[in-house]
Amino acid sequence: MASDMFKGRTAVVTGGARGIGLACAAKIAAGGGRVALWDRDMDRAKQSAASLGDAIAVEVDVTSEQSINVALAKTEKDLAAPDILVASAGITGPNATVIQYPVDAWKQVLDINLTGVFLSNRAVAPGMVKRGWGRIVNIASVAGKEGNPNASAYSASKAGVIGLTKSLGKELATSGVLVNCVAPAVVKTELFSQMTEQHIQYMLSKIPMNRFGEVDEVAEMVAWLASPLCTFATGAAFDLSGGRATY
């Protein structure tokens, strides 16, 4: 990918302070793009933005429409209107059976992982449509396709992200705005701290390559989907699973 692939483009990355979001932001910044890291952890977001060059940290609660609107206005003021959205903010939630799953935890996972993606997509899409160009890449998961036991809220939320992506991609198919999602198998990030060791080993056992994904591997695929090179893919879920998902 050319070193100036994102020159003149502005990207919003939710959950951009760390993990997959930060790796995606770094890839876009390396291609000459301006990046707004939307995150609730401002200390970490500011540190990450400082490492990227032409980047800013914007405090946001992705579950709040008002917070997202404020973050969008700040991004437009301090950088420019976003051409690219990478919706990466998410949590895993507890590992528990459906029968034992706490209702409050269920609501929190769905609120952040699904409603947060919906609100982010909904906020940036009108401007992209008006300008006639945009790329939205949502971070889903293979769990949204297959369902992981003891992770029902996470699996359901990521299945919802896939469905949302398909719907919005079709709605905007003739607008110049392409909407896709990436469905990785488990990627080693700080989210591991939210999982039990038993659950981590279960997920590893499902991957034929017998290793976890790396954030930079996800960022490579996201960067292509967010770039002008992607021209005929929309409403699609791209697997990145070390052989786990082959359909």
Score class of each variant (00 low, 15 high):
V129I: 15
I20L: 13
A223E: 03
L164V: 09
M128K: 12
V137F: 07
K166S: 07
T115Q: 12
T231K: 11
A81M: 13
A87F: 03
A81L: 06
M42C: 04
G144I: 07
R34S: 14
A245Q: 12
N113V: 04
I56C: 11
S227I: 05
M5A: 13
T231H: 09
G21A: 11
A219M: 08
F6M: 05
T92F: 09
W38T: 01
S88R: 04
G21Y: 09
M209L: 15
F238Q: 06
T97H: 08
A233W: 11
V86G: 01
S51A: 15
V222L: 08
S241K: 06
N210F: 06
G127R: 11
W224F: 15
I136G: 00
G144N: 11
A26Y: 00
W106K: 04
V98F: 15
E65N: 13
V109T: 13
A156V: 10
G93R: 00
A49R: 04
V124Q: 01
L110W: 08
M195A: 13
I68Y: 05
K170T: 12
S241M: 05
D43G: 12
N95V: 04
F192M: 09
G33Q: 06
E59A: 10
I207C: 11
A26W: 00
S51L: 13
M5K: 12
K158M: 08
T14A: 03
Y247F: 14
E220M: 05
W106S: 10
K158E: 09
G53V: 06
A123F: 09
I207W: 11
D83N: 14
G163R: 10
L110Y: 08
F192P: 00
S157P: 05
K130Q: 14
K77D: 14
Q47L: 14
A55W: 01
L168W: 12
G15F: 01
M5H: 06
A11Y: 02
V86F: 14
G235V: 08
Y101T: 03
G127H: 11
D111K: 02
L178C: 08
V70K: 11
A125E: 09
A151W: 00
T10K: 03
G132I: 10
N138C: 10
Y202T: 01
N95M: 11
D239S: 14
A36M: 07
I136H: 00
V124W: 00
L225W: 07
L225E: 02
T189G: 05
A226L: 03
A11G: 07
S227Q: 11
A173C: 07
V58T: 03
V35W: 00
D61T: 13
R44M: 14
P82H: 07
I112H: 02
R40F: 13
A73K: 15
G213T: 04
K158W: 08
T10A: 06
M5P: 00
A55L: 08
A156D: 10
A236G: 04
